[in-house]
Design a protein around this nucleic acid. Sequence first.
DNA 1: ATTATCTATAGATCTATAGATAATGC
DNA 2: ATTATCTATAGATCTATAGATAATGC
Lengths: 217, 217
Amino acid sequence: MGRPKRDDSRDTRQEILDRALELFATHGFTGSSMRDIAKAVGVRESALYHHFPNKNAILTTVLESSGPGALNSLMTNDLVRIIESLGPHQVLRTMGETVLTLWSTPRERHLLRLIMAEMPRLKEAGLFDLQAQVWRVRTRIGELFASLVERGLIKPIDPRTASLRFMGPLLMIRVLHLSDLTSTPNLEAMREDLMRHIDSFWETVKPEPATKKEKRR
Amino acid sequence: MGRPKRDDSRDTRQEILDRALELFATHGFTGSSMRDIAKAVGVRESALYHHFPNKNAILTTVLESSGPGALNSLMTNDLVRIIESLGPHQVLRTMGETVLTLWSTPRERHLLRLIMAEMPRLKEAGLFDLQAQVWRVRTRIGELFASLVERGLIKPIDPRTASLRFMGPLLMIRVLHLSDLTSTPNLEAMREDLMRHIDSFWETVKPEPATKKEKRR
DNA sequence: ATTATCTATAGATCTATAGATAATGC
DNA sequence: ATTATCTATAGATCTATAGATAATGC
């Protein structure tokens, strides 16, 4: 046996990470053995140790390459300027379309499950802190709403409550439609939930027409 | 050694279930060994097998005795009548206080973590289906809102969206404040989030004063 | 006699390592 | 020479069982 012939279609290291994510997401970290991972990749256990020093390093690498999260990456510095040109309602709808696309990829669904399942382990290892992450995004969205209030683009509202009212249903929609890996998600139903939520949220924060008239005078 | 002297303060079977829930919640089902459970209870592994046929039976029993969930148990048949006498806003606030109390017990926090972590296993074993459960509660809350609309107690709103807008923030608050078992929850901050949400939700669904005047005519 | 523990251990599985082997690329 | 695999296996840990032992309750 020994070293196999070169196969350009195969990157073993990446395949280990991909199969490990799938297994960790469905059976948990401790529920997936090195043997399981090796079998899924199609090599012997010892080959895994050529690419990673131990099982924990596989988990660490999977998570380090996981990216910042959809909502977080949407909170860019020029978001307020984009909102000023396109209008808040249109931007919120676009944000909805974006999270729909990003969240519904198999990879993101597996990461969601992994993070839900391994929360304590990931936090203790300093790899991912779900609670802190949600707090951070909530704060950033709160700041966004605060600056929109300042610019008169939405009603005067408490930013903390507004971020909760905006994000809460998004999280619930995500869990409801995407957290069960055994069934294919109904993306049309999910888009409907998402857009109805955003439109209905917009109705509750859009500035009063009366206020607009006053400004015009 | 052999059988220990009777100790009325000790119910080994129940202690096995309690310690197992704690361990499963922090390290997962596969991450907690029978040895770990036995050590936490203060007996040998073989004593566990006197009370339960195997490890899986411990998990099953833990979950069977877990109850219906706070939101679910609030959705009683006479809820509409209570709302008619106390008013929707007051009832929503009382519901908030109730879930705050029920969710923040150590037992409910451990169950939340267990369910988040072991979703696929619990679903496959037919023990608990988180997705289906959330759908069910959402539907019941939707029906509640529909009947409140019918009675003119709240604005005409789409029940599906309303249930999402009501429940989503509740779920987010629960995850944000109660899912990390390594820190004691800040119940005052949680109550504030909860009550601000409920008050702000009420503002968006309370019937128009204009409509009331029209009715009086 | 029954119940609730214990000691001891079988047998499976798991992580990780040692050392052999063959392909690759300088 | 280096890299990527393999075979083989050590040693730890895990689930579960057999059988001994002492307290309990009829």
